[in-house]
Write a protein that binds this DNA or RNA. Structure first.
Lengths: 189, 189, 189, 189
DNA sequence: GATGAATGAGGATTCATTCAT
DNA sequence: GATGAATGAATCCTCATTCAT
């Protein structure tokens, strides 16, 4: 079972979503197609599981960052949050992109939705502490901007992730600067 | 020929890229498969043509906006630019998303690349006029952020585009606020 | 009409029988498919006409050689006959091979059969004059051997036709040496 | 797998190469198209395997004949060699012709080339023992003549193979009579 | 007569899934 | 539980032929 997921991961990383077919996965995993179907009811189910794990690890990482930054000023928290958000893209760009592609094709999975929500919650928690009026909207946008910049950066071969992170921080902080807050101090710090 | 493109467009809009197959396109277009292949050498060619048209219209729209805003302050130019950039997503969210997916799968097409470059050039032209040190990077990031926010907004059903546009402007202006400029005035206006 | 045959010939020569399709022929001939079908009822008919012409030219050439050698000894006649038989392969190896392939696929055509018969008759006339008991059989075999050697020689790129001709003469004369004759002289000359 | 080859063989024998298509083969073999593709990667591969087997059996038969005739005079060896060379055409004329046609269309296969070479080598071994100056050329020509006569005999329905063999022997011996040899005796025996 | 757009049956190939062993 | 051979619907594409203009 782990072998099946591992094999799928490898194919996703190397040749993308379209190259994932049950026969190839089974062969690479060293099991038979029959066994594959014993553990997963369908090809989709394998991908769904992988997507679930990705979302879980992402949300876990962001939640941890959010907790760690609980008492820190925004200018310090945002870079840490952004690093957490970008982590998967940075370490596994092709795999992550392929899994996001898979996620888009798959029917809505509750666990995946929960993971996405958790990512947002972590951001919301972080932003809420700093008095933003609509932390949900801001969280969603920041995550979306981040994904946008990272995906575009990846598209042209492996990018300089230091630069990517710097620009993401700039985008996030810039965006937040324009967001309405209750009783805010003039600076974000 | 237009009928074929129209049929493909309809399928793309309704059921996404995976649902586009030559038989269905031909049927919906009211022609035979043979005729389809008389006008397009392959399934890919149909999609390529549609992608090309999308890129062309996008770049045209942005170039026009850039020209129109030539002498205006950034705070006025950015909203106009952003509206132009988002137009396709706003009017045809599912179709546009499907075509972007198609674009990713298709081999690099010179016209499409030119279209993409033109979009960036329009942004660069606009930003360059306001003294940004690296307008290319800023242009790429703003376009990427924009796409990110729009795609995320679309994902959960048809969004309130007025809100989307407002947030995109906020993101773009916020990002630019943090960008290095030569001899810049303290404000963006 | 000649243009159609000419175009077909060109395709046959360059890309072989499988590459002959009505659209390509029409295009290369500079006419429309419709016109093509005005002159020839089917794709096969075009090929049949070409095969017919090949057989006609072959039989004409051999008949002429046979007539010219009417009063000459076999050792002189055979080289001339062989040269005539091989002429088409020598000048148009690819085209001739392609047409023989076509002939094999086509339904028996009376004209083509007549041409084949005429080739045989020319050989028979030549051999009959020299007292062979079964000139028909000998003629058929000599023609067949000739084709065999030529086709095999051609298979490995353009051969040295001087050598090919010499070997064919050797084969033909050697074969005839072993054939029963009525009142034959001990030598073939 | 054997069933697939058997079905293909049957179609080849009955209706020739053009009639071989994967659907028909699968149906006649009593398997699904999917199964066919489990055993053979393509239509060509099926034909290639059949061609390979034909070449193998031909070369095996000729090599055996060559070995058996190692110490016998040419006049005795040639009939045996010719019988071996013609065997496939004699027992399966239509199938053999169809497979040779297939071979011509298929990309060069190393095994098939080896088989062809082996056929020639067997002839060369046999001829070399009798002092022919250029046994390679003679071998090629004799094989080619043989094929030529057999194919032509076959063309007009199933021939009298006793007669065919006799004529092939005559052709081979006659050809060899005219070939240069080192220190040869006046007769071929 | 000429045109060439339209037709659609036919053919090769893929791959998710099943099920007898 | 495991296996992997078998399935066949689905898909892309070709090309001989027709027929309205």
């Amino acid at each position: 079972m782990e072998a099946i997921l591992e094999a799928t991961t490898r194919i996703l990383r190397q040749d993308g979503l379209a190259a994932v077919n049950t026969n190839r996965v089974a062969e690479l995993a060293g099991v038979s197609v029959g066994s594959l179907y014993q553990y997963f009811p369908s090809r989709e189910a394998i991908l769904a599981e992988l997507v679930r794990r990705l979302r879980l690890s992402m949300s876990g990482r962001l939640a941890a960052a959010s907790r760690a930054m609980q008492t820190r000023p925004l200018t310090e928290a945002i870079p840490v949050m952004m690093a957490a958000a970008v982590h998967a893209y940075e370490t596994e760009p092709r795999l992550t992109a392929a899994l996001e592609e898979a996620e888009a094709r798959l029917p809505r999975d509750p666990d995946v939705m929960a993971g996405r929500r958790a990512v947002k919650e972590a951001m919301i928690a972080c932003l809420g502490r700093h008095g933003f009026t609509d932390p949900g909207e801001a969280a969603m946008d920041i995550v979306a901007m981040t994904r946008g910049i990272v995906m575009a950066s990846i598209a042209g071969g492996p990018p300089d992730f230091a630069s990517v992170r710097r620009r993401i921080e700039r985008a996030a902080l810039g965006y937040l600067e324009g967001c309405p807050r209750v009783g805010q101090s003039p600076s974000l710090a």
